[in-house]
Design a protein around this nucleic acid. Structure first.
Lengths: 340, 340
DNA sequence: GCTGGCACTCGTTTGCTCGGAGTGCCAACT
DNA sequence: AGTTGGCACTCCGAGCAAACGAGTGCCAGC
């Protein structure tokens, strides 16, 4: 039985608790929000809410605190995304429009997100695996040394140095350049790696060795998932505002060091929807006191990576959700533009 | 008047305090270190050390704690660098030898340094300004779109996209490629930027416009000191072991967000010497409770950047100094190798 | 079904005592 | 002159009890 007023009470409890960080009692609730009923009535509702597991009493004579289940209901049913102010929108737009390359976009997004939400922000670098090859460049540094440069559609550039057993002349290198580009330009990276694998069989005999070496590092670079695991973190200083150090801050600090953990937190689910994971719902029991608000980004439903914020379960969900969504949209747009 | 035994006492106080985090009294001192004198004698020495400002008493009936001045004396006169264990040396060597590119070297160094010292580690990316141009590549993506790739001696790769007003044919682009490389390959970046500036005057008239555009982004990329300000930070979780949150952890967390501050902490002095900055000696009064152990790195006295660790003034100086120096040496070696 | 009243609970704050670690000083010893 | 044992003194912090008060649950009345 969850009638409207009880939902109002729950919303009020969440909002007050988020604001004050202290268990909220019936009297304060009625005063701060114009509930139009007496404290006693609210107390009855609170007792019911507690029975149903939405709120919890730290000890007998204390106010109530939302449970994870309570936050969940709040997020699902009660929260309306706080619209970004015009100033905030402008800040996002001007900052991100000024980014010069991929690294810059990621760095600026992290900074932005942490400042908007006053929380720890996490931005995953666009995954290699979903992007396409834009261009491959072969640069001969010395006769036996070739620098291989792989330019991807997301703007990511990978370079590798290859030592060849025999010298290769520039015209041969030019031929190879054309060949590798024909095989892979515009193709998704996994397919490109496969196509390149067959390439050494198709070139002139005297080029086979160098082709093999070059294709080797290329496919290696393409299947190198190191970048899939790269994330940028920012706003750690916001942890300082957390109340409880040992249960909240320390485990989170440790998690932030482990990028694999962070990726799991962001949820590589591949979906672009805005997701909220509250406390124990997450995969790590040490992080039972923290929530994650995350979403995927990428042009038009094309998932390139995820970004989000991590904070205490007691956090401003509407604000965080709005900020995460807004930043994700801008990042998607920017990446799309650079890609035309 | 600083005789030998008083120095011994100071050393013992520093070592004990670093180990226990608690003010150390005369009795415990005599017991733990074989000083060969009675507590009363030590007390006299301690009184003298306190008069001279090397140690300090939190309150009348407490033990002594080293002052910044005391740590300074300890570092200058009393500390001998803890030699790295064979296992540690091996760990450094194998980890860094496995690095595939510049980013990787920096990331791994940070991780290494923070693990070795159990402290917050900071590694500055090699500055652009001191490096030389290894190669410039021009890739035509569409007839009016050229990707400019700048490869530096440190392994750093910068890319920029240029929109041209008029289409440029591949042969012209090849000519330009040769021209820009002739002007700048092997040249220090500042000089290269200057040399490139004169280039548009020297090309064929129909190329002037595209040359100007390309040279424009190149010089911009070369004089872009954004990378001079890039630093990697790791081991933040080690902050969790700090005692006092508000005076020690919070300001440091805030400082870690501000890369400019970090660079100042590392000290861009340009010297490659191992420097230790203790508490108030640093430029920020908020960081009076933290010390910095840093050094420059780069092949043979050629300063490319700095790296170091930040921790509480009460830290293991000998260990940190040894680790910082060892990592700096390895990083220098790696960068030198990649440069041949 | 809402409300005011009331007894009750229990964590927090405050004030207090008391033990002990550590000191400074002094007189005696080497 | 430097070192030592002895001793009175200081003061922090642990431990405990009492007072406080915010908040509750329940009940009778509207």
């Amino acid at each position: 039985m969850v009638d409207d007023r009880k939902l109002d009470v729950l919303r009020a409890i969440v909002e007050d608790y988020v604001a004050t960080e202290e268990p909220v009692g019936s009297k304060a609730l009625v005063e701060r929000h114009g509930l139009g009923v007496s404290p006693a009535t609210v107390r009855n509702d609170m007792a019911a809410l507690e029975d149903e597991g939405y709120i919890h009493q730290p000890h007998t004579s204390a106010g109530r605190v939302p449970t994870d289940k309570g936050y969940r209901l709040f997020v699902d049913k009660l929260a309306t995304l706080k619209p970004m102010s015009a100033a905030e929108r402008r800040a996002i737009a001007t900052l991100l429009d000024g980014a010069v390359d991929l690294d810059d976009v990621v760095q600026k997004s992290v900074r932005l997100l942490s400042q908007l939400t006053r929380q720890v922000a996490i931005v995953q670098y666009p995954t290699l695996s979903r992007s396409t090859v834009r261009h491959i460049e072969l640069v001969s540094l010395t006769p036996t040394r070739v620098m291989v440069i792989l330019i991807l559609s997301t703007g990511r550039v990978e370079q590798r140095l290859v030592e060849l057993d025999a010298a290769v002349v520039d015209t041969d290198l030019a031929e190879l350049r054309v060949a590798v580009n024909q095989a892979s330009a515009g193709v998704q990276i996994a397919a490109a790696a496969a196509a390149l694998g067959d390439l050494p069989d198709a070139v002139r005999p005297e080029q086979v060795d160098s082709a093999r070496a070059i294709v080797g590092v290329l496919t290696e670079a393409m299947s190198d998932h190191r970048n899939d695991e790269r994330v940028a973190v920012g706003g750690t200083a916001n942890l300082a505002r957390y109340g409880d150090f040992d249960t909240a801050v320390r485990p989170l600090l440790e998690a932030l060091e482990e990028h694999v953990v962070l990726l799991k937190l962001l949820g590589e689910s591949g979906t672009d929807a805005l997701t909220v994971r509250i406390g124990h719902e997450g995969p790590y029991s040490e992080l039972a006191a923290t929530s994650v608000v995350a979403t995927g980004y990428g042009p038009q439903e094309f998932h390139l990576g995820s970004l989000g914020v991590v904070g205490p379960t007691r956090m401003d969900y509407p604000g965080s959700m709005a900020a995460v969504r807004a930043v994700a949209r801008y990042v998607s747009r920017i990446l799309d533009e650079g890609n035309q």
